[in-house]
Amino acid sequence: MKSSRPERTTIGGIAGRFGLATHVLRHWEAEGLLDPARDTAGRRRYAEADATRVAVILRAKEAGLSLDTIRVLIAEPARRRTVLRAEAEALRTRIAAAQKSLRLLECALGCGHEDVTRCAHFQEVLAERGSSES
């Protein structure tokens, strides 16, 4: 017979699921990002909602968000849109810079010149660094 209580996992189980060290989860808890239930012995027990929150934190960190910003995303609905608009614009800027860098690398990879800096096409791509049009 199945229990009506939701299934919960240990800190080691949730850490393993996401490839994290357990101290990372403890740190996020100390930062107010996670609040797992505790069993009668005081051990952390993570539900599926906690796993979802871990996934949100990881994805937000991959996007370059700080833990403070992630806390706003998760726990401060009144400030969420304002903060996330600014973060989205910053991410767009980083993506545009990364795309320019990738164009430069791809140009260098495809260049047959001994000294890539003497290549006219490479210099054109490099000149984009000073241009706001690209």
Rank of each mutant, 00 (worst) to 15 (best):
M1R: 09
S4R: 09
S4P: 06
S4E: 08
P6C: 02
E7P: 00
T9R: 13
T10V: 02
I11E: 06
G13N: 05
A15Q: 08
A15V: 08
L20S: 12
H23C: 09
H23G: 03
V24F: 06
L25P: 10
L25T: 07
L25H: 10
L25K: 06
R26V: 08
W28M: 00
E29D: 14
G32V: 06
G32K: 02
P36F: 07
A37L: 04
A37V: 01
D39A: 08
D39E: 06
T40R: 14
A41H: 04
G42N: 08
R44T: 05
Y46H: 01
E48F: 04
D50F: 02
A51Q: 05
V54L: 08
V56Y: 07
I57W: 02
I57P: 01
I57Q: 07
I57K: 01
L58S: 08
R59F: 06
A60F: 03
A60T: 05
K61L: 14
E62C: 03
G64L: 09
G64Y: 12
L65A: 10
S66V: 08
D68C: 07
I70P: 05
V72Y: 12
V72E: 09
V72Q: 12
V72K: 12
E76Y: 03
E76Q: 14
P77K: 04
P77G: 05
P77M: 03
A78G: 07
R80E: 10
R81T: 15
T82W: 03
T82R: 15
V83T: 15
L84R: 04
R85L: 13
R85N: 12
E87N: 09
E87V: 13
A88N: 10
E89A: 15
A90S: 13
L91H: 08
I95N: 00
A98E: 12
A98D: 11
S101M: 05
S101A: 14
L102G: 00
E106H: 03
A108N: 00
A108H: 01
L109E: 07
G110Y: 00
C111W: 04
H113Q: 14
E114Y: 05
E114H: 13
E114W: 08
D115H: 09
V116H: 09
T117N: 10
T117C: 01
Q123D: 03
E124W: 11
S134G: 13
